[in-house]
Write a protein that binds this DNA or RNA. Structure first.
Lengths: 199, 199, 199, 199
DNA sequence: GATGAATGAGTCTTCATTCAT
DNA sequence: GATGAATGAAGACTCATTCAT
């Protein structure tokens, strides 16, 4: 797309500025209280510039949500990999623990991600021609780590998926609404449930 | 308060009209694409009438989401109660099955409910002075049905809660996005997981 | 107008209720922040009743402003009459002093009256068939008290009128805005000016 | 701030258009009967443009009232300065005469100004960092022209102020309501009173 | 006479998007 | 590519007034 690579660097910067500004404002004030105007002001660019880099506000939002998820997943993955956790179940729980802690510390981010998370978006990014290799790999290893068991890989994937949904849902209600209890109290129960599911 | 029952009945009708109109439009076009204007047009009342019955759009939304949840929960509860399911786990699964089937048939309703579900709202309704007795009871029996086990009632409640979140999350992604698979395929895996959790 | 005198008493009561309620609210919140709705609520009557007694909001406002002026003028008049003030100038100043003190204690009333005072309204009330005799007399004596001087009665009236406007204007700016100074400081200067005007 | 003077000029023009349109409509229909909608229609700009230049309707109103006062005061001042009037009292009367004549010719403007005049506004404009020097000077010379007399400058200012209020009040009732007489008839009496006040 | 539910024109304000420069 | 003034449709909400009961 960019004709001259040199320019592309400058442009990337501007784009990143916008992304960062929007992320900050979305997290601080919520999506529906953040106008394009506020974003460009915070990023110190002109209104029109926004539309040079993003189709519209939603495209920007999707990208931000994707970035947050991607970065968090990779960090959680590395945390689990470098932990001394022995079995694969322990590693999965270490990952989830990492994610829970992160959202406990960043509840606004959780709000943003949860309300706007979309699997199709992720799927596209790990399926398309210029796919996100790093993320793909992390996700794959997550899914396939249970190959030892007598489950088909689809079934394994579905189980992991279900666990993830459960964790996501609990994060939201326990951290944001403290319902039915706080996250700290819920955690042992959650981990126990996961262990039971995975035997 | 109402001196004349007849009048009150008329007003209830109008209120219900508005509720129904809004529900339809919310389901069809989404919340943020449904203006108060559209609602009153669809309900065939004047703009001002809306504000006679609802403080604002959000109050209306909350009521709709609550109504959907309430009615679905009660129906699921009755379905489970009248099923031949023996054990308590079977009854819980019967309930969940009912809910899954309902959302499979009404994916738009699922969209509406999922994005705007809020435990605090439910909590308020089953806690306040003039609480919703019927719903309260259903929820209580859900939570306390596992008193036989060696779990504290809080832990039992938390487990049920987690299962509900898992089911809710899976419904959304499997029914709306068909991710990672469709609901029909996911169901057996889900039920198996629930059984494992509850032993 | 009223067919039955008995009813008229009840009606007068309702009318007075509305008047009193509106006056209170106008003074407390200002005219443009006081809705007919608030008035009828505060007066404990139905919305429609309002329009049974007043053509519209403005008619009500006019009546309130008139009542305030009338009552204040009469009270000021009596205060001056019963004061030991000797000359006619002293009596006029005593009157003005009374009015200034009243507005100093009731700045909100001053706001209401000043922004909505209208001579035509007063004129109509003291000119019409069923004129307000008491007020008429007070005003007349005010105007004609200077008959000893070699001024035509028109000129005397105009001078008094001008003095009244000056006092009214000063009240507003000195009491409400403390501009150019507070009323207490302005008073001696004002009285000195009046004396000079009247010799 | 403006990098390009040309652009700024265009914008100033648009702002002035809005100002002029609003002024016309305010004068013709009154403030509360003039909607932002009507203003932008009359100025041939889009609704949003209004809010590009003015915070809200009130800010616009304040600016208009200020502009009218400012321009009238300066014109009156110049008229008095260039008149052959000898003493300072004569010059003050010349000024007042100018103002009276102006309002006689523009009664609608008088209405607008009188109901919305606000000393605090004026005060702010002649006190703030980037104060209106020209107006400041005119006002100062008005106030201080009586330094010869044995009055403190505060007292002199207060007297002038009182005279101004008297004139303003008389203008309104004599011009708008012809009460108690028309302005032409009132003028000699008024001037006589001013002379008496100032000896 | 009294009621109060219903009206709907009207208000201000926001904001994503465009486009001439 | 970058700008930011301009747009105007759309939004939520208000409230004086009416009228069937």
């Amino acid at each position: 797309m960019p004709l001259i690579k040199e320019l592309s660097a400058k442009m990337k910067l501007k784009r990143d500025n916008l992304l960062a500004a929007a992320r900050e404002l979305f997290i601080e004030n919520g999506i529906y209280n953040t106008s394009v105007d506020a974003i460009v002001r915070h990023a110190n660019v002109a209104k029109g510039t926004f539309y040079l880099y993003f189709e519209d506000k939603e495209a920007l939002l999707n990208e931000i949500v994707y970035d947050i998820n991607r970065s968090l997943l990779l960090k959680a993955f590395n945390a689990a990999r470098t932990s001394e956790a022995g079995g694969s179940t322990d590693r999965l729980i270490a990952m989830i623990d990492y994610i829970i802690n992160h959202f406990t510390d960043n509840p606004q981010e959780l709000k943003l991600v949860k309300k706007n998370f979309s699997w199709p978006l992720i799927k596209e990014k790990i399926t398309s021609a210029d796919k996100d290799a790093e993320l793909s790999e992390a996700l794959d290893s997550l899914i396939e780590y249970r190959h030892i068991k007598d489950l088909s890989s689809e079934e394994a994937r579905n189980i992991i998926f279900a666990i993830v949904e459960m964790c996501g849902g609990l994060c939201y209600s326990c951290i944001i609404h403290k319902q039915p209890t706080d996250m700290e109290t819920m955690k042992p129960t959650l981990f126990m449930m996961i262990r039971k599911i995975l035997e």
